[in-house]
Simulated scan of single mutants.
Amino acid sequence: MGAKEVLENGVGCRIGNGKQVKIWGDAWLQPPHTRLFLPPNHVLSPDSHVDALIDSEVGWWNLNLLQNCFSQEEVERIGNVIISPLGQDDKIIWKGTPSGLFTVKSAYHMEMWRISRERGESSGEYGGGMECSRRIQKLTYEETDGRGLLLFFFEKLDNEEVLEALTVAQMIWLRRNSMVFGRGFSPPLKVISEVHSSLEDGALGSSNLAHFISGLEVGHSFWSKPPQGWWKINWDASIDKEARRMGIRAVIRDGNGAVVAARMSFLPYNDDPSAVEALAAWHAVKLGREMGGTCIIIEGDSMEVVMALRKNRYNYQNYGHLLEDIATSLSFFSICSSSACKA
């Protein structure tokens, strides 16, 4: 396969407002099947853009229209796409890195994975010498406590190896989710390839280690009241695979711990836990604005989302525009901060 074909296979569209991307033929759905193809006598025009499928009043997919125009499988594939509630423009992204930015190495990894998959070879072939550091391979940890595992990493490994170990753990977790939610089971070669791409891409930079260390030392694991005069907005999200829907919850409490407002809603199924958590954070911030909050703390149990909001630097990943929408909405508050909490 030539360089042009490699690039075409790796490039996709991230839907913001859907005005620049065509429903039929453009690559805007989640892998592995990123395109819809126009069947004969379809009710929608061949030139229709994705915004025709969005309910502009609610800033989300028009579920009734989707169910009338597409099969259930296609409805779920479309529902898996996170759009921008504030109507950002669509963007071209690279599917081979967590940040959505192109790197030559990630293109190489994607092509090696495609070759090994097409030829049906074992995970050890076409590995291109990719493997974890030897010190990580030889680690043995018998406990199941996540906090203890992180402390173990910091004790036994240097900073670069800690980054690698955390990235491996993240990719194994995503591999598990992929199997649970019916997207197939990735072989080890693909997992290691994604680890190398993520490390090169800097998805978890060394500067973020301070957040992990401070979180371990301070132990901000459980809920606490906000300062007087502040509101704390907690969000949570859940995915119900059997009911094919996701639940989003947000609750606002004042400095006395009293509930100011709460909201719970159900949305069409999405199988990306991080994207669903980001969507829940958006609804939490939206609730805070509707209630007229001024000084707020937003708090959820997704460290990935919280760290992205703290960095205030967003990327081209599939829900990066949602994080940007959250940041835009947070700018309307007088004072705000974000934190992670288990309960």
Rank of each mutant, 00 (worst) to 15 (best):
P226M: 04
E111W: 11
D236L: 03
Q317W: 08
K105T: 06
E8F: 12
V251K: 04
S84L: 00
S45K: 13
P188L: 12
G2H: 07
I297H: 01
M171H: 09
R14I: 04
G124P: 03
I335M: 14
S274F: 00
L7S: 12
S178W: 04
L63M: 11
G293M: 06
P188A: 05
L163E: 05
A3P: 06
E142N: 11
W24A: 15
P46S: 11
S198D: 03
E121Y: 11
L267T: 15
L166Q: 07
F37P: 06
R244Y: 13
G100F: 05
G300T: 10
R245A: 07
K156N: 10
G293F: 03
S99I: 00
L44E: 00
G288T: 01
Y319G: 05
S221N: 08
G184M: 02
P85G: 09
N256D: 12
S339G: 12
K19Q: 13
K95A: 06
P32R: 11
L309G: 01
A308Y: 00
S45A: 15
S48I: 02
E277Q: 12
P273F: 08
V191T: 14
I335F: 13
R175N: 15
Q228I: 10
V75E: 02
G124T: 09
S334G: 12
V260W: 02
A327L: 08
R117W: 05
F332N: 10
R114S: 14
A27T: 10
N159D: 07
W173P: 03
M307Y: 14
A250E: 01
G247M: 09
E131S: 09
G96F: 04
E217P: 07
N68S: 14
D47L: 15
I83R: 03
T34L: 13
E299N: 06
